[in-house]
Simulated assay, not measured.
Amino acid sequence: MSLQETFGTDQPVALVTGSGSPRVGRVIAEELSRRGCHVALHANTSGDEANAAAASWQRRFGREAIVLIGSLEDDDVCDSLIDQAHSHFGRLDILVNSAAIWSPTSLDKITGDEVRRYFQINSVAALLCARAAGRIMTQQDRGGAIVNIGDWATVRPYADHAAYFPSKGAIEAMTRSLAVELGSRHSGVRVNCVQPGPVLLGDDVSEETISQLVHSTLAKRIGTPEDVAAAVAFLCENTFVTGVCLPVDGGRGIFAPDGLQVGRNTG
């Protein structure tokens, strides 16, 4: 089923937070534009990059793309982003909460203010944006779809990210809670989560590390932002999936490399 069929319009509308800079959120927004959505990109400090992307997509895909600016550290911005997108397009069918911050920090150096900032941007803002979008979607005949971007590694966290992982772990419970809250008000409103694995590695990642990451997946490759974008589109299109946290990690979350698996003792 296409997005047009799902939402009962030739011109569905999507808002993707954290889609200004050339990372996963940008690729998600581009994929939704390619699939026929009008798109609202959200940026904080990367407005120029977002505007260039919006202009390019309008030429390539024939759909409108606008750019909304604001820091998700401010609660009021969450409502404002949703209101601006809805006011401009007259509807809102998809919200993707992709904005996030992360930076390696030793546990000994983390401050309370830093922890609170991680939760504000990675968790609280996502919930507030979803709540604002839900107010609109519950009034639309076909409802709407909200997709939160989590992280597969919340179940296997690694060192020096002790503020980041708790803030991302909250996304899973939040997704289920919002699915119940909004789905109870309108059966056409669905809330899901995508948990990316190793995708879009930094330029400073060594060949040795890349090889280790490849070896740690069943797919035997590094993922791409396009893999994540395709999963987001699927969750937007499928009207019988809600409250799900979908790992897009090449099987890394379930795989024990080199046969390091627990089995019965046959000795």
Rank of each mutant, 00 (worst) to 15 (best):
S2N: 12
L3N: 05
F7T: 09
G8C: 07
G8L: 04
D10S: 15
D10R: 15
V13P: 12
V13F: 09
V16M: 05
T17K: 04
S21I: 02
P22W: 02
P22Y: 01
G25E: 11
G25F: 09
I28T: 10
E30D: 12
E30K: 14
E31T: 08
S33W: 10
A40K: 06
L41I: 04
D48Y: 01
D48E: 15
E49G: 15
A50H: 05
A50W: 04
N51M: 14
A53W: 03
S56D: 15
S56K: 15
W57F: 08
R63K: 13
I66R: 14
I66N: 12
I66E: 14
L68G: 07
I69F: 07
G70M: 04
S71E: 12
L72I: 09
E73Y: 00
E73F: 02
D74G: 00
D75W: 00
V77F: 02
C78D: 08
I82H: 02
I82Y: 06
D83V: 07
Q84S: 08
H86M: 01
H86L: 05
H86T: 13
S87Q: 15
R91K: 10
I94N: 06
I94S: 06
L95G: 09
V96D: 05
N97L: 01
A99M: 04
A100G: 13
S103I: 13
T105F: 07
T105P: 01
S106G: 10
L107E: 02
I110S: 13
T111I: 07
V115T: 13
R116F: 10
R116W: 07
R117P: 12
Y118K: 01
F119P: 05
F119A: 14
Q120H: 12
Q120R: 15
S123W: 11
S123R: 04
S123N: 15
A125T: 05
L127M: 04
L127E: 11
A132T: 05
A133R: 11
G134D: 06
I136V: 15
I136L: 11
Q139D: 12
Q140D: 04
G144V: 04
I146R: 12
I146M: 08
V147D: 13
N148I: 07
G150F: 13
A153P: 03
F165V: 09
I171G: 04
E172A: 14
M174G: 08
T175L: 05
L182G: 03
L182R: 10
L182D: 08
R185F: 00
H186W: 09
S187G: 14
S187D: 12
G188S: 06
V189W: 12
V191Q: 10
P198Q: 06
V199K: 03
D204N: 13
S206C: 03
S206W: 09
E207L: 08
T209A: 10
I210Y: 00
S211W: 00
Q212Y: 02
V214C: 00
V214F: 00
I222W: 05
I222Q: 03
P225M: 04
E226K: 04
E226T: 11
V228S: 11
V228L: 11
A229G: 06
A230S: 14
A231E: 10
F234Q: 09
T239C: 10
F240P: 00
F240I: 09
V241M: 08
G243N: 05
V244D: 03
V244K: 01
C245T: 14
L246F: 08
L246K: 01
P247L: 06
P247T: 10
R252P: 00
P257T: 01
D258C: 05
D258A: 08
L260G: 02
R264C: 10
N265S: 10
